[in-house]
Write a protein that binds this DNA or RNA. Structure first.
Lengths: 340, 340
DNA sequence: GACTAAAATGGGAACGGTTCCATTCATGGT
DNA sequence: ACCATGAATGGAACCGTTCCCATTTTAGTC
């Protein structure tokens, strides 16, 4: 004699049980509870309690048009930076009464497109995108259909979308200032190729220009991290090339920092003597050798900021905004020049 | 003259546009497309195309009872292990045509309860839980209402739920075997206190028992990582205590490994001479000093396995199963005993 | 060409809520 | 006593689908 797994109960059953109409029950669980008489309230409360009732969010969304859902599309869910931002986003969503649907594209453009469609089909009320290949066309369509959009560290051609991310120009400037102050003269800027057009150009241009302005020698190198060998070659070449000037490597993100550190250590380079500065702070940066200096991004703030954008743009259809967050320099041994 | 942001179109509009009935359109987007004549198919396709139509998943779920949603409740979204498993889960979900709703409790029991309710209100068709304080009662209710449940590395009193995770006994045995083979004689097992009852006991008992059986001296220490000072004391005490036997530290998870490494390095311990073995493989383990040995968990497999459990249990109401995954030993310098 | 089986299509009732509008009923002012 | 007022409640339409069932079309057979 097994206990019958009692069906999930509906608003109608609660109404019957409480001797009320479904309207009243709906009011109770909506935000009009105070319009009900105290007696009615307790009757409904106990009835719902007894039946284990929970309003069906699907039905709710259908009628009201409020899915209470925010979608987040990320290119690489295993990237600590992504996760850190996600944490901020999730917190902020919860605070606003929204839930988060996360989709991971694993850097696959086709998947990205499919997931975008999926998110749309759940009628998410906002969309946060941190992925490379998003077809502008598709995004534009979403915007037209009224979905607020926030891009993380990515500009979108002509689309009306808010952008949230690092203040790239400032970050590069801070990096150059620091490296110069520590006496490094030859710089190598390492980044991954699928970086978004816009931020990448900003950074690169700023790097080139900044080096010139400071009288530094700057090289930039774009390299997929898949091809360890090529990256390794590039770094070794940089280390042996040219004259005596002190050399430093600047890494565009955490993944690059990881790869570069591996190679530098394997090459027998001594950190500090060879400078190393990474954008993105990571757990382990203080653990490696003399410690790796980083420019930490305020990830939680970025996440919250993104959600704030969404919330704002669904109230008034405000024009898209841009939020550039400043990084923080965390100095460790890897940029403490041993022979300045 | 602004372009009117055309409303999201409905199945009815597509039907009209295609000169068909909504039933046919529904069939087209459902899995009965082949029942339609070729002509009808193309008419619907072009109409939908022109209108930018996407079926409303909310309405779909409401009627059909299929939310196509899987919920995942995690205690700490910033834990790399959690994220790695999540990656596997997400992949598997996508492969099965499901989407993932991730909720993060930040180790807050109250939040956990609320989020559980939330997930339920979206009528998720499966639930993967990796969190400490879940009130058994609430979970039991969900199970009764027919939601398949999978627990990650956590047993649940009397609840009928599948369990997926590391083979804890095996992991401890492998750790002990390895440490013993490397000549370590005094062991310190470090773990976090909010570890789930069951796996924790398994590990602990196995550790104690295993040490005895091998003639090793084993201590276990439970310590919140918040209190760095206390943890530091415990480790230092272990390092100075007792006689000459070679000492090694075994860390229960990645967070513990991180904290312990910090402290060991700060104490001036030399890894290898002092053994260090961590459960959970992390990016940086190969970068620190002589490299940190780990027992890597097959995170992707665990994630996929969890989803597989869900899928199975919604077909036939199979009895709950248990999946214990074997870890892989990755040996590095931190357990290469320099004076065996 | 009439008759039948099968294929293709359409009508309309749910699904579980929200919300507009109508109804009931105590209240108080005149 | 009478009517306007507002609070408390209920009835029913609707949100965008799916799916059962009925109807129309097509092909197949003698």
């Amino acid at each position: 004699m097994t206990a019958t797994p009692h069906q999930r109960s509906t608003i109608l059953e609660v109404a019957r049980e409480a001797g009320a109409s479904k309207t009243s029950v709906s009011r109770y669980f909506g935000d009009e509870r105070e319009r009900l008489s105290p007696g009615m309230q307790t009757r409904i409360a106990t009835a719902a309690q007894r039946l284990g009732y929970r309003p069906n969010q699907m039905a709710r969304s259908l009628k009201g048009g409020h899915s209470r859902l925010v979608g987040m599309l990320v290119a690489d869910i295993r990237n600590p930076f992504t996760v850190a931002v996600m944490h901020g986003v999730e917190q902020a969503c919860q605070a606003h009464g929204y839930s988060l649907m996360v989709c991971n594209t694993d850097n696959d453009a086709a998947r990205e497109s499919a997931l975008l469609a999926l998110l749309a089909s759940y009628r998410v009320e906002g969309l946060i995108i941190n992925a490379a290949g998003s077809p502008d066309q598709q995004l534009q369509t979403l915007v037209d259909q009224g979905t607020p959009l926030v891009l993380l560290d990515r500009e979108l051609g002509r689309t009306e979308a808010s952008v949230v991310g690092l203040d790239n120009a400032l970050a590069i400037d801070m990096a150059l200032d620091h490296l110069q102050a520590q006496g490094y003269r030859r710089l190598l800027y390492l980044s991954e190729p699928p970086e978004q057009a816009s931020p990448r150009h900003v950074r690169l241009a700023r790097f080139q220009h900044g080096c010139e302005a400071r009288g530094l020698t700057g090289h930039a190198h774009d390299q997929s991290l898949e091809d360890t060998e090529a990256l390794s070659q590039a770094i070794r070449h940089f280390l042996t090339e040219g004259d005596s000037g002190q050399k430093a490597v600047l890494c565009a993100n955490g993944n690059v920092t990881l790869a570069a550190t591996r190679i530098l250590l394997a090459s027998g380079a001594r950190l500090g003597e060879t400078g190393l500065l990474g954008i993105d702070e990571l757990d382990w940066c203080e653990l490696v050798a003399p410690g790796i200096s980083t420019l930490a991004q305020p990830t939680d703030a970025i996440g919250r900021s993104a959600v704030a954008c969404l919330m704002r743009s669904q109230d008034n259809d405000a024009t898209p905004t841009r939020h550039r967050h400043a990084p923080t320099l965390i100095m460790r041994g890897s940029t403490r020049n041993t022979r300045p």
